[in-house]
Computed example of a mutant assay.
Amino acid sequence: MEVGVCVEAYRQEMEVSRRHINSAFMTFVVLDQEGQPSTIPMVKPEAGDGERRYREASKEKITGECSVLNRTVYLSYNNVSALKTLVAKTNWVLATEIDKVRMYTLEEDKYLSFRIEMSLCIDATQAFFLLSDLRERHEWDRHYASAELVQQVDADDMIYHVLSQTVSQDNKPQDFVILASRRKPCDEGDPYVVAFRSVTLPTHPPNPEYTRGETMCSGFCIWQETAEVTKVSYYNQAAPGYLAYVTTNIAGLSSDFYVTFKACERFLQKNKDEITVGLQNL
């Protein structure tokens, strides 16, 4: 029997402010009276994420890639969970609003998080599929040079190797290995979720030509507000050390986010008909 374990830390007076510490898998063997492995009763997983992880773990055991893929499955779960935790925080502060594109900030300990949101006329499902494919992101995000799909974990979890336009302090372009996990709403009123986090991949070790960057927690939440209007929110938790830069450059950062989000809006409007044809075939 394989058991996944997730360790989180939080302050007792702020139980919603959790941070991921570590994840692991442990294998237990139940022995009979003669010391031999015995069969345990069938496991009935919990509804929702429990059923999903149960199916994925069973599939991975059959393919013979249990240890590697189970790690990815649990990373995917933590990826989505971390973004949902960030979304649920209530102490966001409106920093600026430009032409209905709003930017919020959240300071906790040494971390600074951003939330940028806008409403536009597009179906939430269309926006969900368009924004979850990092290979298309360079069309609207000028910080992206390219993104290569290097591992298709399953239908909703992918690992990309991303090359950035951003130059590091070492005067080298940055690259990232990013796990993208997308989830459809479980209940009415829940958002579509596209979560991103950095992972390590043996096939893509750090390259001396690039500075390996890290994405701690970022992604999109997409709500269908009305039959015609969808709210798209982007979240990003910045690493320690970024706080001082942002505090002194909030105006420049707001302008950059605005330009990027307006480009995202044009991208979604341009490609929504194309994605509709694909959705009809699902």
Rank of each mutant, 00 (worst) to 15 (best):
E214F: 06
Q174R: 15
I250P: 01
V80D: 01
A180C: 14
F28T: 02
A251H: 11
M103N: 04
D99V: 11
V162K: 02
D156K: 07
S218L: 05
Y234E: 03
N271C: 10
T215P: 00
T105L: 09
A263N: 14
P45L: 06
P41N: 08
P45E: 04
D190H: 06
E60F: 08
Q224V: 06
D170Y: 09
S113Q: 06
Y144N: 13
M216T: 06
P208K: 11
G64Q: 01
L112V: 14
K89W: 11
F25K: 00
D273Q: 15
V7Q: 09
Q152R: 12
D49G: 01
S81N: 13
D256V: 04
V68S: 04
P240H: 07
E46F: 06
P206H: 03
T247A: 14
E136P: 00
L253I: 15
Q152S: 13
L83C: 02
E2A: 02
M158S: 12
E46N: 12
P45F: 04
Q237K: 15
S132H: 04
P191W: 05
L282W: 10
D273N: 14
G219Q: 03
N281W: 05
A238Y: 03
L134G: 01
A82N: 15
Q12W: 13
K89I: 05
F114A: 09
H20S: 07
C221Y: 02
T125Y: 08
G189C: 08
Q36A: 13
L83Q: 02
R137G: 02
D32E: 10
Q152D: 13
G48V: 03
L279M: 14
L268Y: 09
E108V: 08
D154L: 00
V259H: 12
K100L: 06
L130Y: 10
L86K: 08
I178Y: 05
S218R: 05
E148S: 13
V193D: 01
N207R: 10
A239M: 15
D154V: 00
S113P: 09
E274H: 13
T200P: 00
M26W: 03
G50T: 06
Y242K: 11
R18S: 04
A145S: 11
Q237R: 14
L243H: 05
R53W: 00
L86G: 10
D156F: 11
Q33F: 11
C264K: 08
V229A: 05
A82G: 03
R197T: 10
I159D: 00
D273T: 13
V162T: 11
H20D: 03
E139D: 05
K84T: 11
I250M: 14
S233M: 10
E60W: 05
Q33N: 12
R182S: 08
P45H: 09
P41L: 10
T226A: 08
T211Y: 06
H138C: 11
R11S: 12
